[in-house]
Measured scan of single mutants.
Amino acid sequence: AEKTGIVNVSSSLNVREGASTSSKVIGSLSGNTKVTIVGEEGAFYKIEYKGSHGYVAKEYIKDIKDE
């Protein structure tokens, strides 16, 4: 049951290796980017990222929809 969301930041949002603010940053997404959410862990969504997965803070994702 995948969902999509939109990155809701003015600059960019860090994509992390794990569901923690201390996890390594593996990339970033600019505002209004559409993401595919494959799961959630605590305050983070697990998303599809560059052929693999990454984690982003839930508070910066809006317009969550079921695909």
Rank of each mutant, 00 (worst) to 15 (best):
A1P: 15
E2Q: 15
E2A: 08
E2F: 06
E2I: 15
E2R: 14
K3W: 15
K3T: 08
K3L: 12
G5P: 02
G5I: 03
G5E: 03
I6P: 01
I6N: 03
I6A: 05
V7Y: 02
V7M: 02
V7N: 02
S10E: 12
S11T: 10
S11C: 05
S11G: 15
L13Q: 03
L13H: 02
N14S: 08
V15C: 02
V15H: 00
R16T: 10
R16I: 05
E17P: 01
E17Q: 11
E17M: 09
G18R: 07
G18C: 06
G18S: 12
A19C: 04
A19D: 02
A19P: 13
S20V: 08
S20Y: 14
S20G: 08
S20W: 06
S20C: 06
T21P: 06
T21V: 08
T21I: 05
T21D: 13
S22W: 07
S22P: 04
S23C: 05
S23Q: 04
K24P: 14
K24A: 11
V25Y: 05
I26V: 13
G27V: 03
G27K: 01
S28C: 05
L29N: 00
L29I: 06
L29E: 01
L29P: 00
S30W: 09
S30V: 13
G31Y: 10
G31Q: 14
G31E: 06
G31I: 05
N32S: 06
N32F: 09
N32I: 04
N32K: 09
T33D: 09
T33E: 13
V35W: 01
T36V: 09
I37T: 01
V38M: 10
V38S: 06
V38C: 04
V38F: 07
V38G: 02
E40F: 06
E40M: 10
E41T: 05
E41C: 07
E41W: 08
G42R: 06
G42A: 13
G42D: 15
G42N: 15
A43M: 15
A43W: 07
F44I: 01
F44E: 01
F44G: 00
F44C: 04
F44R: 00
F44K: 01
F44N: 03
Y45L: 08
K46D: 02
K46H: 05
K46N: 03
I47D: 00
I47W: 00
I47H: 00
I47C: 02
I47K: 00
E48Y: 11
Y49I: 04
Y49W: 11
Y49P: 00
Y49T: 02
K50Y: 12
K50H: 15
G51C: 05
G51K: 10
H53A: 06
H53S: 08
H53L: 09
G54Y: 03
Y55T: 00
Y55V: 01
Y55Q: 00
V56T: 02
A57H: 11
K58E: 02
K58P: 01
K58A: 05
E59H: 15
E59D: 13
E59L: 07
E59G: 08
E59Y: 11
Y60H: 13
Y60F: 10
I61W: 02
I61M: 06
I61R: 01
I61Y: 01
I61N: 01
K62C: 05
K62R: 13
K62M: 10
K62T: 15
K62I: 07
D63G: 09
D63T: 14
D63I: 15
I64P: 07
I64L: 06
K65P: 09
D66T: 13
D66C: 06
D66S: 15
E67F: 04
E67Y: 06
E67Q: 12
